[in-house]
């Protein structure tokens, strides 16, 4: 099977969907002539031309809103945000307009927009550029949110997102862009709302999403090698819809749970996951649910401190041992 980087996988998803459906257009800052701030859209202008791949001014509220409007008429815009942190200047369009239009029109209007871009800390760029808004956005019914951790999932989820008839927000991660993995050539999608067991185990379930999955897999290896613990890692992949069944099946198997995410803890995704587990599998638990998230402060700039702030394999191991104690 071909090996692609996470970046190439996302690009491949866009290429294939642009070929498949002429209504798919790409818009964003520096996506066309500059080939993308992170080179995710490299070559797409050349291949599809300026009618399909469009550079925008630095007007997120304007161009995202324009994309929402265009999607109402059947265009399938794939909007790139240079950072999801910049979505905050377009919040009304992203939440109020895209998220509510179907409901408020009694189902008369659909909004098949995709907004994608990196949403992560860990890159030493300070608080304004390090937001992880998946929990905040997923809190709004009408919106779908996915967070791929691997090249395979990145491609499959983005293709599913582009074909989806509702707004789907894809949270990528700049630190993962160079990660490599197997990605099939043939057409496939990863259905939105299906979690994936990235590692099977029997003693402890770790539930994670985005880069926290990679961190958790590293921690699982350490736990196995140094502590003889068999860890199952469940990758949520999709935050909303959420795959309750896969989470609960794993809990029924291991009876111990650690939740890991790069969000700040307050009202994080894992707050919801913990609630679901205790309400639907309370009797299965042999220990209180553990949790690792970013230290609860705006993102610190200083790199060595930021590395402490976001979850590391060492912190996951430490927390796992507490749950297992």
């Amino acid at each position: 099977m071909p090996i692609l980087s996470y970046r190439e996988a996302i690009r491949a998803a866009m290429r294939e969907e642009m070929k498949r459906d002429e209504n798919v257009v790409i818009m964003g800052e520096e996506v066309a002539q500059f080939n993308g701030a992170y080179k995710v859209t490299e070559g797409l202008l050349k291949e599809f031309g300026p009618k399909r791949v469009i550079d925008t001014p630095i007007s997120e509220a304007g161009f995202i809103g324009l994309g929402v409007g265009a999607s109402m008429l059947g265009i399938r815009p794939v909007m790139e945000l240079m950072f999801w942190s910049f979505s905050y200047v377009a919040f009304d369009q992203i939440v109020n307009n895209a998220g509510n239009i179907r409901y408020m029109s009694g189902g008369l209007i659909n909004c098949p927009i995709v907004i994608r871009g990196p949403a992560n800390g860990g890159t030493n760029v300070g608080a304004t550029h390090s937001h992880t808004p998946e929990a905040m956005l997923a809190a709004h019914p009408g919106i779908k949110v996915v967070c791929p951790a691997t090249p395979y999932d990145a491609k499959g989820l983005l293709k599913a997102a582009i074909r989806d008839n509702d707004p789907v927000y894809v949270m990528e991660n700049t630190i993962l862009y160079n990660d490599k993995g197997e990605v099939p050539d043939e057409d496939y999608i990863v259905p939105i709302g299906v979690a994936d067991v990235k590692r099977a185990g029997t003693d402890l379930t770790i539930v994670a999403h985005g880069r926290a999955v990679i961190t958790s897999l590293k921690a699982a290896e350490i736990l196995e090698a140094e502590h003889g613990v068999s860890v199952e890692v469940v990758d949520l992949r999709s935050i909303r819809p959420l795959d309750e069944e896969t989470i609960l099946a794993s809990v029924r198997k291991t009876h111990r749970v650690l939740l890991v995410e790069e969000n700040k803890p307050f009202c994080g995704v894992d707050a919801q996951v913990a609630y679901i587990i205790q309400s639907k599998a309370f009797d299965e638990l042999d220990a209180p649910i553990g949790r690792v998230s970013s230290i609860d402060a705006p993102q610190i700039y200083s790199k060595p401190l930021e590395d402490v702030q976001i979850p590391s394999p060492a912190r996951v191991v430490e927390a796992a041992l507490k749950v297992l104690a």
Partner: peptide
Amino acid sequence: AELQGKATGCSKGKGGSMH
């Protein structure tokens, strides 16, 4: 010092170049 993320920086290493 701020650029290097040091405690002696103008924003105590919390802001960085842009802040």
